[in-house]
Computed example of a mutant assay.
Amino acid sequence: MDLSATGEPVMTHQDPQVRVGVHISKGTCVLTRGGTDFAAYHAWVEFAAPEQASWTAEKIAFSAQGPDGKSVGLKVDLLNDACDGPRDGVPDAIWKVVALAATSAGDVGIRYTAPTS
């Protein structure tokens, strides 16, 4: 494929959003839903910085394998219902995946601090 490009791309900071993918070694992050364990192997974390606010992790979507060997998708909203802070009860392991995603995307300007329990 022939491809050419011109210009100086500039990220605007009005309402930027970034979606970051993280591969997870199977068995290192186990998600439990309804008493069933799922081994996560990939996560997509969505970050946003609305109206020049600091970066916030909004949601995370996991690809995981169930006990039957089939792949499933699991989503977790990370913001509380008022969208002004982190949702209560999100396990620390999920916040660690979010922090990994923020670290790997640091080159796009994400400066993120995980909430403290």
Score class of each variant (00 low, 15 high):
residue 1 M to Q: 10
residue 1 M to P: 06
residue 2 D to H: 12
residue 3 L to F: 14
residue 4 S to T: 15
residue 4 S to D: 13
residue 6 T to P: 07
residue 6 T to E: 11
residue 7 G to W: 02
residue 7 G to T: 02
residue 8 E to G: 09
residue 8 E to Q: 14
residue 8 E to A: 12
residue 9 P to W: 03
residue 11 M to Y: 10
residue 12 T to F: 08
residue 12 T to D: 05
residue 12 T to C: 07
residue 14 Q to I: 00
residue 16 P to Y: 04
residue 18 V to D: 03
residue 18 V to A: 10
residue 22 V to A: 04
residue 23 H to P: 07
residue 23 H to I: 08
residue 25 S to P: 07
residue 25 S to R: 15
residue 26 K to N: 11
residue 28 T to Y: 04
residue 29 C to Y: 02
residue 30 V to G: 08
residue 30 V to Q: 13
residue 30 V to M: 15
residue 33 R to L: 09
residue 33 R to W: 05
residue 37 D to W: 07
residue 38 F to Q: 05
residue 38 F to H: 09
residue 40 A to Q: 01
residue 42 H to M: 06
residue 42 H to F: 13
residue 43 A to K: 00
residue 44 W to Q: 12
residue 44 W to T: 13
residue 45 V to F: 02
residue 46 E to D: 12
residue 46 E to S: 13
residue 47 F to S: 00
residue 49 A to Q: 04
residue 50 P to W: 05
residue 51 E to M: 10
residue 51 E to W: 10
residue 51 E to T: 01
residue 53 A to F: 10
residue 53 A to H: 13
residue 54 S to Q: 15
residue 55 W to G: 00
residue 58 E to S: 11
residue 58 E to D: 12
residue 60 I to W: 04
residue 60 I to H: 00
residue 61 A to G: 12
residue 62 F to S: 00
residue 62 F to T: 00
residue 62 F to L: 02
residue 64 A to Y: 02
residue 64 A to K: 02
residue 65 Q to K: 07
residue 65 Q to C: 03
residue 65 Q to A: 04
residue 66 G to A: 07
residue 70 K to W: 11
residue 70 K to V: 13
residue 70 K to N: 14
residue 71 S to W: 13
residue 71 S to L: 12
residue 72 V to G: 07
residue 74 L to I: 15
residue 74 L to S: 08
residue 75 K to A: 07
residue 76 V to I: 14
residue 77 D to Q: 14
residue 78 L to P: 00
residue 78 L to G: 02
residue 79 L to H: 03
residue 82 A to K: 11
residue 82 A to P: 01
residue 83 C to P: 03
residue 83 C to M: 14
residue 84 D to R: 07
residue 85 G to L: 06
residue 85 G to W: 01
residue 90 V to T: 09
residue 92 D to Q: 14
residue 93 A to M: 15
residue 93 A to W: 10
residue 97 V to R: 04
residue 98 V to I: 10
residue 99 A to P: 06
residue 99 A to T: 14
residue 100 L to E: 08
residue 102 A to K: 02
residue 103 T to M: 13
residue 105 A to Y: 01
residue 109 G to K: 08
residue 112 Y to T: 04
residue 113 T to S: 14
residue 113 T to M: 11
residue 113 T to F: 05
residue 113 T to V: 14
residue 114 A to F: 11
residue 115 P to F: 01
residue 115 P to Y: 02
residue 117 S to N: 11
